[in-house]
Write a protein that binds this DNA or RNA. Structure first.
Lengths: 344, 344
DNA sequence: TTTTTCTACCAAAACGTTTCGGATTGTGCT
DNA sequence: AGCACAATCCGAAACGTTTTGGTAGAAAAA
């Protein structure tokens, strides 16, 4: 049934060794033998048994992508794009991509450990990095290759790509202030995530640097989805002194916030400005189109994969740590505040 | 470094065989020995080398998910949800999920073949099934386990889950006609995909069954994304006799269509009704919220995984072929046609 | 007592590769 | 003729499991 090296050896009259070496491009096999072997191999439909190869070489030629557990994982289009980039690039490299998820929160590290010990993958891509991330400590302790999308609060002596959320949101604040906004609300993601934290810092610093004070009442913590964005925005809008602009930590939250604004009979971009983060495809087609910060999700995914591949194969990487600055995309969800509220 | 069975055997003073059998729950090993072995194994941090096991057992305990090539793959939130379901369920079963993509269109079958021959996975989950799908023929020819999300035009003697796109869109037409619409346009996905084809059939049959004629000018083929939905909708709106309702083959197309309508200064749900398909999370939060057909994406993913698992393990499956009927979710993107166009 | 039957264990083979350390030629050089 | 040296090839071991077909000894049956 299955075609093995032995079959090819038999058919060609050569030894298994020679066939193996012929197919793997060693130069101690005559050119014509090599060609003959290749012909026979494809004729028989030979494909190396990966498990045997992996066992012998101790290399899996595979990457692990362990997603967050369900409550933290969401079908954010941004993440899909990131995943697309990872899938595409790992396929380019001929690497297997191994996707799984821990079943419960307390099994996260055990899952990584199992993967390490069972020789399934050569390295990991970490997403949704926390400000203090036990996975990173674990992987460093085992000296296992990995790249992270995001930093931690600690010293970050590992490969990562991150977006400069602080600077990016700071720019958004600058922009809103330049339009005339003085009361700016913020909907954040959970603060344990490093990127959420950085964006919040950007919000605060942005206000301070523009001579505005930080009002805790204007900061609402949401999660990742529109529903939460809507609820958080309603809280802000129902304040005695509501904001004229709402900065959301991601586009889904922003879209939720937009529906909250509309629900209150207000016009997005006129009565209340709303901004997002990520520039998912839906941002452009929202009504009104969403002002947001663009991140090149698929490219980031591809580059993560690239960095990991090189790390695994011991190639020198010129940039171990890459910081990206999302670009502000101004659309119609933002505009000057309504006259009566100006200068509040 | 790595802990193997031999290490555990040495530590316990037993043979490799006994250790293996102890850990794998055979009953020809004394209970106290078994416990002792287990203790030592966890103490040493033993985890079976998967590649060795796979080589020996000829089982990968892994599923393959080969995504469409880039031009056909998109970050549709519906697909993310489906993927979430698959990831979650395969993790539950302890199956590895192996995600990849062919690099070019003509390498699709070769990719499957390589996977089959190299013993990487025990079965496949097929998505984006075409009306004539060479992958299915290939897998059947090799007698390899698989489940498909979608049917083909041929006799479908394999396990699949599909949504009854014909009936579902038919219902949408009934609903629109009941509101008073007489000119109903349609934006389709590429017709080679079986589900696109079925939805189009539903559109046509729906019209006919309601005594309306099918006008080819009202059918525009798009792809999968909003951008295409927008362009297609513009074509429809610019017709000399434009439709009062647009039925889109998925929610992204519908959202694109909505922005086209708004671009022409018309009001969605009043001047022009728009419907989608899938009920992605963004549909509810669109402006106006989108009338659409809900599919339980994550559940479908989980169930596909379930069916495949059972197929691989030879368990009897009571339902090999599952047909789901999406439910119509009426929101504000649909309403009666404007008075002047009534009865056209 | 002898024979049979369990119980608990184990040696060795096998899965299909890769790779180390030769072995066998033929060729060119003294 | 003798020697060194490429150029090709190969045997056998190894990777870490699982599994087959046992064996040794104790308990039960004869």
């Amino acid at each position: 049934m299955k075609v093995t090296l032995k079959d090819v050896a038999q058919k060609t009259g050569l030894s298994v060794t020679t066939v193996s070496r012929a197919l793997n491009g060693y130069n101690d096999v005559a050119l014509e033998t090599k060609q003959m072997v290749e012909e026979v191999a494809t004729a028989l439909g030979y494909t190396p048994n990966l498990n045997a190869r992996r066992l012998k070489t101790q290399r899996a030629e595979a990457l692990g992508l362990i997603l967050p557990i369900e409550s933290l994982r969401i079908s954010n289009p941004f993440f899909s794009d990131l995943l697309n980039g990872i899938v595409e690039q790992s396929a380019q490299y001929g690497l297997e991509l191994n996707v799984t998820t821990p079943l419960t929160e307390d099994q996260v590290e055990r899952t990584y450990l199992n993967y390490i010990r069972s020789n399934r993958v050569d390295g990991f891509i970490l997403v949704r990095v926390k400000r203090e991330d036990a996975r990173i400590q674990l992987l460093q302790q085992y000296n296992y290759p990995f790249v992270a999308f995001g930093r931690t609060d600690d010293k970050n002596d590992f490969s990562f790509i991150d977006d400069d959320g602080l600077k990016a949101v700071h720019e958004v604040i600058n922009y809103l202030v330049s339009l005339g906004h003085r009361r700016i609300g913020c909907i954040t993601e959970p603060d344990i995530l490093s990127k959420s934290h950085n964006r919040l810092l950007g919000y605060k610093q942005g206000l301070v640097d523009n001579g505005l004070s930080v009002d805790p009442a204007l900061i609402v913590e949401g999660n990742f989805r529109q529903h939460s964005g809507r609820l958080s925005a309603l809280k802000l809008l129902d304040l005695p002194n509501p904001p004229t602009a709402i900065v959301a930590a991601n586009d889904l939250l922003a879209l939720g916030a937009m529906s909250a604004v509309q629900e209150r009979g207000l016009v997005v971009g006129q009565d209340v400005s709303v901004t997002g983060y990520d520039d998912i495809m839906l941002a452009e087609f929202a009504n009104p189109p969403l002002t947001t910060l663009r991140q090149p999700a698929a490219e980031i995914g591809a580059q993560l994969c690239d960095m990991l591949f090189k790390q695994i194969h011991g190639e020198a990487v010129k940039e171990k740590q890459i910081m990206l600055l999302p670009s502000l995309i101004v659309r119609q969800s933002t505009g000057p505040p309504p006259p009566q509220s100006k200068g509040l």
